[in-house]
Simulated scan of single mutants.
Amino acid sequence: MPTQPARSVQRAARVLKVLAATPETDRTLSDLARAVGMPRSSCQALLLALCDEGLALRREPGPHYRLGPELLGLGRAASQAVVLADILADELPRLRDEFQATAMAGAVHGDAVVVTAAYPVPHPYGLTARSGSRLPFRAPVGPIYVAWAGDEAEAGWLARAQPALSAPQCDVHRAALAEVRARGWSATVQSHRDQATAHEAVQAHDVPAVHEITATDLVATRLHVIGVSAPVWAADGTLACSLALTALPRDLSGAETRHIAARLVEVAAQITTNIGGARTAGPGSR
């Protein structure tokens, strides 16, 4: 049975839309109640909640109400999200066609990495990335999202790993994040072992099935690259999303991986400029 929308949220949205229709004019409680078809007492309770959240502003005498200051940030974020979605709809198909690989964007939502846009290449078994797909945000998944996020975010990412990481393993991941920061991009590759040996090592928790690319990998002639990603920065200096290429058509050399990464960094930098973004100095810049 479909879940029904919350009526209180719908009513709050109607009140905000009424206030937004005449943003320069203060509205009385009675006026707003009539406009949205609510009892005065119910409208007052709703307005008090909106004021507590900064989404509406109570002004005396009256009282009168108008839109609140918190909506400025929400409006900027919404505007950026719309612009970013439009840009990704143009750029991701181009990357897919250029490299014959699945091109996608992702972002962290809570404890998950979510694919926010995906333009896949056909897969013989129907295995492909889709918009809305989720992965748990924990080591080793998603180093691009944590490399610049600061010590607290890094510690949480490591602590959420399953199975739990030893101190030396955490040090390996920290070194990998430092490499991501230094390069400006991330690449996940399959471990350097034959399949049987790698399986035994993973079962023994000796080495992860995949790892962040290393300087040694970058001089190799054959790498099984799971994915390459680069950051897009928002106006407030946080990560707006990552751009990534995965399901690459063949194994790559280190030089080929560098070429793909450089192209992703170039496109990500242009998108950052187009949305008015920039990575600012802060705890995650390091």
Rank of each mutant, 00 (worst) to 15 (best):
A20L: 15
A20I: 11
A21M: 03
T22H: 11
T22Q: 11
T22R: 14
T22A: 12
P23K: 07
P23F: 11
P23D: 07
E24L: 13
E24C: 02
E24A: 13
E24V: 12
T25D: 14
R27Q: 15
R27C: 13
R27N: 11
R27S: 15
T28K: 00
L29N: 02
L29F: 05
S30R: 12
D31K: 13
L32G: 06
L32S: 06
R34I: 09
R34E: 07
R34S: 14
R34K: 12
A35V: 04
A35D: 09
A35Y: 05
V36A: 05
V36N: 02
V36S: 03
G37A: 15
G37T: 11
M38Q: 14
M38N: 03
M38G: 05
P39S: 05
P39Q: 04
P39H: 05
S41K: 10
S41E: 14
S41D: 12
S42R: 04
S42F: 00
S42Q: 08
S42K: 04
C43W: 08
C43L: 04
C43G: 15
Q44S: 11
Q44V: 05
A45F: 11
L46K: 10
L48Y: 10
A49Q: 10
A49E: 08
L50K: 03
C51A: 12
C51D: 09
D52C: 04
E53D: 14
E53N: 07
E53R: 13
G54H: 09
L55Y: 08
L55P: 03
L55S: 15
L55D: 13
A56V: 14
A56K: 06
A56C: 08
L57S: 14
R58S: 01
R58T: 00
R59W: 01
E60Y: 02
E60I: 00
E60M: 03
P61Y: 00
P61F: 00
P61I: 00
P61V: 00
G62R: 01
G62M: 01
P63Q: 01
P63C: 00
P63W: 00
P63V: 01
H64W: 06
H64P: 02
Y65I: 01
Y65G: 01
Y65C: 00
R66C: 01
R66E: 00
R66S: 03
L67E: 07
L67S: 03
P69K: 01
P69M: 02
E70R: 15
E70T: 10
E70N: 13
E70Y: 04
L71N: 10
L71K: 09
L72N: 03
L72S: 07
L72I: 07
L72C: 02
L72E: 10
G73L: 04
L74P: 00
G75H: 13
G75I: 12
G75L: 08
G75K: 14
G75S: 13
R76K: 07
R76A: 08
R76G: 12
A77P: 03
A77D: 10
A77M: 06
A78M: 12
S79V: 09
S79L: 15
Q80H: 03
Q80A: 06
Q80P: 02
A81V: 01
A81K: 12
V82E: 08
V82C: 09
V83Y: 03
V83F: 05
V83I: 05
V83E: 13
V83A: 14
L84S: 03
L84P: 05
D86S: 15
D86R: 14
D86I: 04
D86Q: 13
D86C: 11
I87E: 13
I87C: 06
L88C: 07
